[in-house]
Each structure stands twice: as structure tokens, then as C-alpha cells.
């Protein structure tokens, strides 16, 4: 019976821990949007700003952007650098990046290659191309230019590149993504009882644009932006 007592005591502490953890998660705000250029760009879209430029989104003309919010950069040695684009980095504020593949591993388009963890939520980023991982880039500070995560020896590169956007087309695509973000943000914005939804009347999201979202809403965001 003493053995049972010990195991039950441990079980009681574990159950308490699970309950405490659930309570903490339930009250933990998930910051989906940071105060960032994405928010500013979003406001420009809302306000019908006529002159959105690639600089508004910090798109680089030498990078191909995948709908799953990764980029591909062609290197002179025939390899390609793959990373997470600015949009996603800003959307998952205060994230922690965890790699999911190792050098020598073959990855295919659509395979999870990294996880972005933020405030207890996890989003998996999918590989934009097929290839063999040749290098893991060391963790680097993000100083305006998104650092690459992996280098790959690509396979079926030309086929995959046709699915991505580059240059002005990337800008069009990203504006579309901002539009989607607008839709999501509108749904998450508080709706005061007196006036109802405010975005249709020109209301702007405040900083942070969305301070809280639950697991279901987060899953919806992931689905919208091609994440797992």
C-alpha cells in the first residue's frame, strides 16, 4: 500500500501540474502580430494607400517567394538558400525557430523543415523545393534581411520555381497575403456591443493588432498562410 501511496502522491502532483498548466495556457495571450512593418503595410492597405512598394514589405528582388512563406535564393555554386520570409517572421512575433532536418537529409517540397514556436503555439514551415540539405546556417541575428536557414542541393528546381513569385509578382502576391491578413485581423478584432464590427467603418487595429487568439483561431491562421 505504501507503494500505491507514493505513486498516487506523484500522480496527484502531476494532475495539479496539468491543471495549472491548462489554466496558464488559457490565460496566456498569443501575440500574433508585432508592431511591425506588416502592421503598417496592413494599415496602408486598409487606408487604400496608392503607392505600396516592395520596400513596404522588404522584398528582395533576388529571392523567390513561396506561398508557404519561405524564400529561395539561388547561390553561385548551384545550391539554394532557403529561409522564412519577413511576413511570417513578423506575424509570429517573439518566435523561436527550431530546425527539423539535418545535413545529408533529402527533403521534398511540402515537407516540414522548421518550426516557429511562439507563446506555446507551434507552426511548421514547409520546404519550398526538393533537394538534399547541404548546410545548416548558424543562428544569425535578423537585422533587416532575413537570414537563410538551410542550403540545399536542389532537385526539380525549375519546376518548383514556377510556383513561386519573384520581383513585382512577389509584391502582388504579398499584397494578397496582406489582404488575407486583413480578413483574419478583422475577425479577431474586438466587436464592441454598441457599434459592432468596426473595420468596415474604417476602424484600424491597434498595437498589438491581435492580442489574443485561441488554438482554433491559430489553426485557421496557419491554414490561411500555408503552414502546418
Amino acid at each position: 500500500m505504501v507503494a500505491i501511496l507514493v505513486i498516487l502522491t506523484i500522480a496527484v502532483f502531476l494532475v495539479i501540474d496539468v491543471l495549472v498548466r491548462r489554466r496558464q495556457l488559457a490565460h496566456q495571450p498569443v501575440r500574433v502580430f508585432a508592431s511591425s512593418f506588416v502592421r503598417e503595410a496592413l494599415q496602408k492597405v486598409w487606408m487604400g494607400h496608392p503607392a505600396l512598394t516592395p520596400a513596404d514589405f522588404r522584398l528582395r528582388p533576388d529571392r523567390f517567394y513561396d506561398p508557404g512563406h519561405t524564400f529561395v535564393e539561388l547561390e553561385p555554386d548551384g545550391t539554394v538558400a532557403v529561409g522564412v520570409d519577413r511576413f511570417l517572421r513578423e506575424m509570429m512575433a517573439d518566435f523561436r525557430l527550431v530546425g527539423l532536418v539535418t545535413p545529408g537529409q533529402t527533403v521534398s517540397r511540402g515537407q516540414p523543415i522548421a518550426e516557429l514556436r511562439s507563446n506555446g503555439r507551434t507552426a511548421r514551415v514547409l520546404s519550398p523545393i526538393d533537394g538534399v540539405v547541404t548546410l545548416l546556417h548558424p543562428a544569425m541575428p535578423d537585422e533587416g534581411v532575413e537570414p537563410p536557414l538551410y542550403s540545399l542541393a536542389p532537385q526539380n528546381l525549375s519546376e518548383h520555381l514556377t510556383r513561386m513569385s519573384v520581383g513585382e509578382q512577389a509584391l502582388v502576391w504579398l499584397k494578397g497575403e496582406i489582404g488575407k491578413l486583413q480578413g483574419v485581423a478583422a475577425q479577431l478584432m474586438p466587436k464592441p456591443a454598441l457599434v459592432g464590427a468596426t473595420s468596415a467603418d474604417g476602424g484600424l487595429a491597434r498595437d498589438p493588432l491581435v492580442s489574443e487568439c485561441d488554438e482554433a483561431e491559430f489553426t485557421k491562421i496557419k491554414n490561411t498562410f500555408g503552414l502546418m
Binding site: P67, G99, V101, G110, L126, A139, G226
Partner: peptide
């Protein structure tokens, strides 16, 4: 950040399912 995980058959199955789901949303030139 270079923590790693092995891509298991289960993950692969999940990926294929998700990819099929995402396909219509993909943008092409």
C-alpha cells in the same frame, strides 16, 4: 535554432494530407 527532428512516416503522412489540402491555394505565374 538548428535543433533537429527526424521526419517520421507519421509526419510524412501528415505532410501529404496537408499538402493535398493546401494545393488549391498555391499561386503560380
Amino acid at each position: 535554432w538548428t535543433g533537429t527532428v527526424v521526419i517520421t512516416p507519421a509526419l510524412e503522412t501528415e505532410r501529404v494530407a496537408r499538402q493535398a489540402e493546401l494545393q488549391p491555394a498555391r499561386v503560380s505565374i
